[in-house]
Structure formats: C-alpha cells, structure tokens
Design a protein around this nucleic acid. Structure first.
Lengths: 191, 191
DNA sequence: TCTAGAATTTGATCTACATCAAAATGCTTT
DNA sequence: AAAGCATTTTGATGTAGATCAAATTCTAGA
C-alpha cells in the first residue's frame, strides 16, 4: 500500500532503483485524525513526515497557555520541526493535525544510517532540506516584517485558496497575529 | 594566507585531510570595504561566503525605493541568500557590507562538483545547510510574530551586545521594523 | 578648531489594530 | 425541529507605534 510513496520520494530528486529499494522500507504509513499531535513542544522531533493529504498547523504556546500558530501545511508537503530534528533538542513548537491526514514517516536514525550508506541518498537529502527550507522560509520573514494584516491575509488566500474553507477563522487570525475580530472585519471589507 | 580557512571548514563538520585538500582550493579570499554589495536584488546569488570578520546586512528595497533590513550577520558567519543560491533564481534581497569585512567565497558550481565527487563533502554540506538554516531561522519567525519592538530590541542587543556600537540606529530600526524615532525612545527608556 | 551635513532625540498628533462586551449565526446531537 | 455550544460578526473604546516637524548632538573635512 505504498504506491504513492515512491513518486513522493522521486519528486524530491531522482534516486536509482537499487537505492530506492533500500530507502522505501524506512518509511511507515500513518493516518491521523483531526486533533492528533505529531509533535508536542518540549519533545525532540524525531520524525520527518511526508503528508500526502490533510492539513497540519504549527503553533507555540506562551506562558499563559495561549496558542499562536506560525504555519499551516496543506496536502503534499514535508512536515517536521527542522530545528529540533537537526539539533536533537526539544522543540519549541507543536504540530497538530487540523484536517484528517495521511503521512509517510521516516525517523532521524534511519536518515543518518542512509546518509552514511549511500552517497546518492545524501544528495537526495540535500534537495529535501533545500525544498523544505524554501517552503518554510521563502518570503515569510519579509512578509512578517513588511506586510500589514490585510496584505498578509490576501497573500495567504491567494497562495492557498482553499485555506478559508479548511481552517477556522480563529486559527488563521492566530497565524496572522491579529485578533479574530480584526480578521472578521478584514473579510467583510470593513478594514 | 588561508590559515583561517581550514578551521572554519572543519568547524562545520570534520573532513578527511585528503578531501580537505581538494576542497580548500575552491575557496578564494576577499576583503571588502563598508558599502560593498556582495549581492544586489535581481541577481542570482552565486556565492557562499564565510565571513571571518566584519558585518553585513540583508535588506529589501520596496517599490518606493525604501530599504528595510531583514538581518545582520556579524563576524564568523555564513553569508548567502539561500533561496536564490538553491533555486538559481534572482534574489529578492540585497547583501551589503556595513563594516569592513573578510571572506572566503566558494561558488555554486564548485559546490555542485564537490558534492558529486565526494560522499564526505555531501555530508559536510548537509551540516552547513543545517547550521545556516538554524542561524537564519531559529526563533526569528516566532520573534517577529510574538514580540513587540522593545522585546525584539532587547533580544537583539542580548544576542549581539556589540551591535549597537557597530550598526547605526537607522539600520537597527529598519530591522526591527520601527521608525528611528521609536527606537531612540526605546533606548532612552521612554517606551 | 570651526563648520556643514549626518545622525539622533524630542514633541505633538494620528491610525491600525487590540481589547472588552454583546449579538448573531452556524453546527451538532438528540 | 429544538437546544446547546462553538464560531463569527458588530460596536465602543484604548494603545503602541507611525508620522510630521523641529531641536539637538555627533562627526569628518577644511
């Protein structure tokens, strides 16, 4: 039942059939419902997930227990807390499924083993890290610094037209770092 | 005169002497004065620099020609526009020396060649990308979302105590995305 | 040492978005 | 279909930091 795993792997970078045969068994398939935590802040992120469908949010919890979303990943994306995964230190953020999702997961140890074993896998992994960096970082820092709430909302809905159907106003407002009230006013054109 | 290059390379990850001998000639040494542009927005970033001392700023220029700093790197840091370097697309941002600086530079082509040639170099490069990701991203997105101007200023000066001596108030205000006036008031304790 | 331009500080007002409170709407479960 | 809860919308007021204008301090060259 791993029919969609290989295309996902090969979409990152090509890998010879022989190496692919050694790589695919390192992945396991999971289905998680809305509300499930892939990662809780304070734990080391030990997995890297390929999400094939669904939606997750990344969020911080402040000292008062208030949550603040920093990101959403929808459908076919790499999901992990890169900093924790790389440093082996406890994650600052949590990752939670917000729409039932399926994943292929590989753990850190398997990656380290494959990196040492196959030069070609190391080249593949470089592409993965680069791709993930771009997904997570591109424009985001500049947007946070230079766009106001309305512009960021418009950019988000342009980039992910389905997001407003799939994620609640509260979650989106939290991501935009504005209140629900303000987002509601933006949506209705009063701002 | 490449005495400090090898320690810098080895500080990323260990490399066997034989491979190191093949890697070091790919780097060239440069000294650039304040004001020099390592990268101008619109050009593809073709180089990766190891800065051994000095200071650079990363900034965007908006449609009105107004500049906004997104980052500073001081002294011993990796300097490059990762997105452009990886995607080979024109950079959105510019990188400029703000305090006379020395660098060891390697170009993209040399990296690609060495990646294919040496498995160990690929493992080294993974460490480099990870290190750079952490330098550039760690906490930064969360800080932008959750800290106010004063908190971000305090964090910046804690992280880089020398920054206020080395970088003008205008550049720092631009990075904090506040006006010079507001930063001046923060410094004097009026906010 | 003097001077001009640049950098920084100070003051007064304005605005985007927050906060608090309440009303309206939508979604489940029986 | 009604009840009950969660989500979204609306309204009134407060505040951090912007903007505009001017004064002050620093700094480099003559």
């Amino acid at each position: 039942m791993k029919t969609d795993l290989e295309p996902f792997i090969l979409s990152i970078n090509n890998l010879d059939e022989t190496i692919l045969q050694d790589v695919t068994p390192a992945f396991r398939h999971y289905e998680y419902p809305k509300g499930y935590f892939l990662l809780k802040a304070g734990k080391v992120c030990d997995q890297l997930w390929f999400m094939t469908k669904g939606c997750v949010r990344y969020f911080y919890t402040d000292e008062n227990g208030k949550e603040a979303n920093t990101w959403f990943s929808l459908d076919e994306q790499i999901v992990t807390d890169t900093i924790s995964f790389v440093t082996r230190k406890p994650a600052q953020e949590s990752i939670q499924v917000v729409e039932d999702a399926s994943f292929y997961a590989i753990d850190c140890e398997a990656i380290q083993r494959l990196l040492k074993k196959h030069h070609a896998f190391a080249l593949w992994y470089i592409k993965l890290v680069e791709k993930h960096y771009i997904e997570q970082v591109e424009d985001r820092i500049a947007d946070l610094q230079f766009l106001d709430a309305k512009q960021r909302y418009e950019k988000l809905t342009t980039l992910y037209p389905s997001i407003t159907n799939r994620i609640s106003l509260g979650h989106i407002a939290s991501y935009l770092n504005i209140t629900q009230e303000t987002l509601s006013r933006i949506r209705s054109g009063k701002l």
